[in-house]
C-alpha cells in the first residue's frame, strides 16, 4: 500500500433511505464544472448541506444509498465537499464502486439508522468499526476489503492504475 489507510473522523450528517444520484448530482447542474455542481449536492433534501459541511464530515444514509444513475459526480461532489466516508445500511452497487474509484470510501453499517445527526464519529474501515464519541456507542459494520482500501489509499483507481502501469501511484 502506498498511502496510509484512511481513518475518517467528523460530524455525522444523517439522511434517510434511498438518497439517489439525482439528489447528489442533479441533472440540471450536470454540465457545470464539479465546483459548481457540488453546490447543488443534496439541496433537494437538505439545502444547507453543501454550504455547511466541513472537511472530514461523514454522510450517514439508510438503505440503497446512491441508487439511480451511474454518474460519478454523485460521489465526486461528496468528496469535493470534504466528506471523508459514507456509512449506509446498504449502497447501490454503481455508487459503491464509483465512490472507491474516485477515492471516497463507503462502509456498510446495518445499524446506521441509530446514528444521530450531528454526532462525532471515528471510523476504522479495515476493522469495520464506527465509534460515536458523542454518545459513547459503537457500531459494527462490514470491514472494507483490502484491495479497495488500497485504491482509496492510492487516491482512487486512476492513481492505482498508474502505480500498476508505471510503478508509482502519483499520476
Amino acid at each position: 500500500m502506498s498511502g496510509a489507510a484512511p481513518a475518517p473522523r467528523g460530524r455525522a450528517w444523517v439522511f434517510g433511505d434511498r438518497v439517489d444520484t439525482d439528489q447528489l448530482a442533479p441533472g440540471y447542474a450536470m454540465r457545470k464544472p464539479l465546483e459548481e455542481l457540488a453546490k447543488h449536492c443534496l439541496e433537494a433534501v437538505r439545502p444547507e448541506f453543501a454550504r455547511d459541511v466541513a472537511r472530514g464530515d461523514i454522510v450517514v444514509g439508510g438503505e440503497g444509498f446512491g441508487i439511480g444513475s451511474s454518474r460519478e459526480q454523485a460521489a465526486q461532489a461528496l468528496r469535493f465537499l470534504g466528506v471523508s466516508v459514507v456509512l449506509a445500511k446498504s449502497a447501490a452497487r454503481i455508487f459503491y464502486r464509483n465512490a472507491f474509484n474516485i477515492g471516497l470510501p463507503v462502509m456498510i453499517v446495518p445499524e446506521a439508522g441509530q446514528i444521530a445527526d450531528g454526532a462525532q464519529l471515528e471510523v476504522d474501515l479495515a476493522a469495520g468499526l464506527v465509534r460515536d464519541t458523542t454518545s459513547g456507542r459503537e457500531y459494527r459494520g462490514e470491514p472494507v476489503p483490502a484491495f479497495l482500501l488500497e485504491i482509496v489509499a492510492d487516491g482512487g483507481l486512476i492513481p492505482n492504475l498508474h502505480k500498476r502501469l508505471h510503478g508509482k501511484p502519483a499520476a
Partner: peptide
C-alpha cells in the same frame, strides 16, 4: 452491467 467513468477508464486501459 453499468459502471462509472473512472471504472470505464480502467476497462479501456486493461
Amino acid at each position: 452491467v453499468g459502471i462509472g467513468a473512472t471504472e470505464m477508464a480502467g476497462v479501456l486501459v486493461t
